[in-house]
Amino acid sequence: MSAPKILVIPGSHRASSINAQLGATIVRQLEKDGASATLVSLADYPMPIYDGDWEEENGAPEGAKKLAALMSEHQGVVFVCPEYNASITPLLKNTLDWLSRDVGCKPYAGRAFALASCSPGALGGIRGLSHMRDVFINVGADAIPAQLCVGPAGSAFDDDGNLTNERQISLLQNMSAKLIERAKQFS
Rank of each mutant, 00 (worst) to 15 (best):
M1H: 15
S2W: 14
A3I: 08
A3G: 09
K5V: 00
K5Y: 12
K5T: 03
I6S: 05
V8W: 05
I9C: 02
S12E: 05
S12K: 08
H13G: 02
S16Q: 13
S17P: 03
I18T: 15
I18L: 12
N19C: 11
A20Q: 13
Q21C: 02
Q21G: 03
L22P: 02
L22Y: 00
R28G: 08
Q29Y: 10
L30E: 10
K32L: 13
D33I: 00
D33C: 08
G34V: 10
A35K: 08
A35N: 03
A35Q: 03
S36F: 09
T38C: 01
T38Y: 00
V40L: 05
S41H: 05
A43I: 09
Y45V: 00
Y45I: 00
P48M: 02
P48N: 00
I49G: 01
D53L: 12
W54D: 12
E55R: 06
E56R: 11
E57I: 12
A60K: 08
G63W: 02
A64C: 01
A64N: 03
L67Y: 00
A68T: 05
A68R: 04
L70A: 07
E73T: 14
V77I: 13
F79T: 07
F79E: 03
Y84D: 00
N85P: 06
N85G: 07
N85W: 00
N85K: 03
A86V: 05
A86S: 14
A86M: 11
I88K: 02
T89P: 03
N94W: 01
T95I: 04
W98C: 05
L99R: 04
L99P: 00
D102R: 09
V103F: 07
G104H: 03
G104P: 01
G104Y: 10
K106C: 06
P107R: 02
A109M: 06
R111V: 07
A112G: 02
S117V: 04
S117G: 01
C118I: 03
G121Q: 10
G121F: 14
G121I: 13
G121D: 07
A122N: 14
I126S: 12
R127D: 02
M132L: 14
D134H: 10
V135S: 04
I137L: 11
N138H: 13
D142V: 08
D142F: 12
D142M: 11
D142A: 13
A143Y: 09
A143M: 11
I144P: 13
A146H: 10
Q147H: 13
L148F: 11
C149D: 05
G151R: 10
G151H: 08
G151A: 05
P152C: 15
A153T: 05
G154I: 02
S155N: 11
A156Q: 04
D158N: 12
L163Y: 09
L163H: 09
T164I: 12
N165S: 12
N165C: 12
R167Q: 14
R167A: 13
R167W: 14
Q168H: 13
Q168M: 14
L171A: 15
M175I: 06
S176V: 11
S176G: 14
K178Q: 15
L179S: 01
I180A: 01
R182S: 04
K184D: 04
F186K: 09
S187Q: 15
S187V: 15
